[in-house]
Design a protein around this nucleic acid. Structure first.
Length: 458
RNA sequence: GAGAGCGUAGCUCAGUAGGUUAGAGCGACAGUUUGUGGCACUGUAGGCCGUGGGUUCGAGACCCAUCGUUCUCCCCA
């Protein structure tokens, strides 16, 4: 047997890590619940058909595919060989793989809505906290198995949903203690920019290039636009667009100027204005300072059609820790048209990394064992065990040392496990019907009757 | 998909211009005469130096390949 190891990009989580992760999950879940979202869980695997073609070419490559069973069936060898030939030239893979691990939570949710839209009450608000898998190359803040916490509203065009989702972001990150910038933009504005630059088909090229602005600078963005087939006058429009600056309302009016009477842009700007304006009146004091218009924000997933969100943590170098947006026809690919939706996602694993780096986890999260009962012999341990069970019935976390051993050993074990109290029941205590309770942090101890121990406030 | 760095004890690492039996700290385990721990002292265990080739009288060190891992780009949470 080779050395045991873990698949690339996956991790084990020890007790401390699990507790910290649960703290994040519980915080986010409680916010979802307060906003009226209902939980949903879907299988780890989906039919490959459900996932393919939803995330763009890059995304398709990163989907983990599951090998079909029964490929060694001799009767089917020729068929399987033929199918494999198709795989080699990038065609139909059904004979080899027809299931895959989910890549995100949104598409499985869309599949669920498409399957159940007859029974659902719209608008339907669901949240989902489950792992997803991507065959990406791991690096800082990037894993092959990671959790997403999504909440989506489907069946409503109302922009109040966008406001609520922005507020959920602000509230959750406030509770976690992370300073964040919530960037917003609208796909409609990006589409309008493409219209100004000679065609909607240019939108993808333009967004890919301008998305890199803060990373590579304006000159290199212009180079890339040139390479992607835009001419000088088009690039100068984009340069104007990218130079829009100032506070929120300055940005909005500058954009209005640039786009003039373009109907698509007008709609997009109105939506952003609504979101900003409504949020400011929502009396969440921290919300205003955190929402920023970022006209360079594009977001990769190509099903977004309206307002898009992206969350970045301040004071730390980490990719986005959340993202989302409006998609007006998500279930259309499942032949259920006209169900619009909007949703956001939290990247728990990156949030964890950020909180670890900024030391934001509360200290009092330890929920380890509170009391160690010493094992000082046959009769002693029996008495201790009985007492321990009574404490456990009162929800005190107890353990008894697994075998009779020297004091030294049992103390050291308690130290290592950071157990704060020890109960010592030896022959003396047994005779008197008492026990010795020692506070291991303070180093003090007292003799209690068994009744006093059961009433003790740990 | 493209590129760079790193693989020596359970962990963090030293290992000088290639030269005998590969080291330290921490951790683990045991003991310092079995009713009071954290400290200290003593001792023990634990390494085909990632793997496979090559150069050399001689390789942990140099070269090639391979695997693993970290990071960057792409893309993304």
């Amino acid at each position: 047997m080779a050395k045991p190891s873990l698949p690339q990009g996956t991790r084990d989580f020890n007790a401390e890590t699990v507790r910290k992760r649960n703290y994040i999950f519980n915080t986010i879940r409680s916010v979802f619940e307060v906003y009226g979202f209902q939980p949903l869980e879907t299988p780890a695997m989906e039919n490959l058909d459900t996932l393919m073609g939803k995330y763009g070419d890059e995304g398709d490559k990163l989907i983990f595919k599951i090998l079909n069973n029964g490929l060694d069936n001799v009767a089917k060898h020729q068929q399987i060989k033929d199918d494999f030939e198709k795989v080699l030239i990038g065609k139909n893979t059904k004979g080899i793989t027809e299931r895959a691990l989910r890549y995100d939570l949104t598409i499985p949710f869309a599949r669920y809505v498409a399957m159940n839209h007859g029974q659902l009450t719209f608008p339907f608000k669901r949240y989902q906290i489950q792992p997803v898998w991507r065959a990406d190359r791991p690096q800082r803040g990037r894993y092959r198995e990671f959790y997403q916490c999504d909440c989506d509203v489907v069946g409503s065009y109302s922009l109040i949903n966008e406001v609520e989702l922005a507020t959920i972001y602000a509230t959750a990150f406030e509770k976690l203690g992370i300073d964040v910038e919530i960037k917003i933009n609208s796909r409609k504005i990006l589409a309008a920019l493409a219209e100004l630059c000679g065609g909607a088909d240019k939108m993808i090229d333009i967004t890919i290039a301008i998305d890199k602005l803060d990373k590579i600078g304006i000159e290199k963005v212009k180079d890339e636009l040139l390479q992607r087939g835009l001419n000088d006058s088009q690039i100068s429009i984009i340069e104007k667009y990218l130079s829009i600056d100032g506070d929120t309302f300055q940005k909005l009016s500058a954009a209005e100027n640039l786009f003039q009477n373009n109907a698509t842009a007008k709609k997009g700007l109105e939506e952003i204005y609504f979101l900003i304006n409504y949020s400011q009146q929502s009396q969440i004091s921290n919300l205003k300072s955190q929402i920023n218009i970022d006209f360079t924000l594009a977001r990769g997933l190509n099903y977004y059609t309206g307002i898009i969100f992206e969350v970045k943590a301040k004071n730390v170098n980490m990719g986005s820790i959340g993202g989302g947006g409006r998609y007006d026809d998500l279930t259309g690919t499942f032949d259920v048209p006209n169900i619009p939706g909007v949703g956001i996602s939290f990247g728990v694993d990156r949030i964890y990394d950020v909180m670890e780096e900024l030391k934001l986890f509360p200290a009092e999260m330890q929920t380890a064992t509170q009391v160690l009962f010493f094992n000082l012999g046959e009769a002693e341990s029996r008495a201790a065990f009985g007492l321990m069970q009574q404490l456990r019935a009162k929800n005190i976390r107890c353990e008894i040392y697994h075998e009779q051993a020297k004091f030294d050993k049992q103390f050291k074990w308690a130290d290592k496990k950071q157990i704060p109290y020890a109960v010592i029941m030896g022959s003396t205590e047994l005779e008197n019907g008492t026990c010795t309770l020692k506070n291991l942090k303070e180093g003090v101890q007292e003799i209690l009757t068994n009744e006093q121990l059961l009433a003790f406030e740990f």
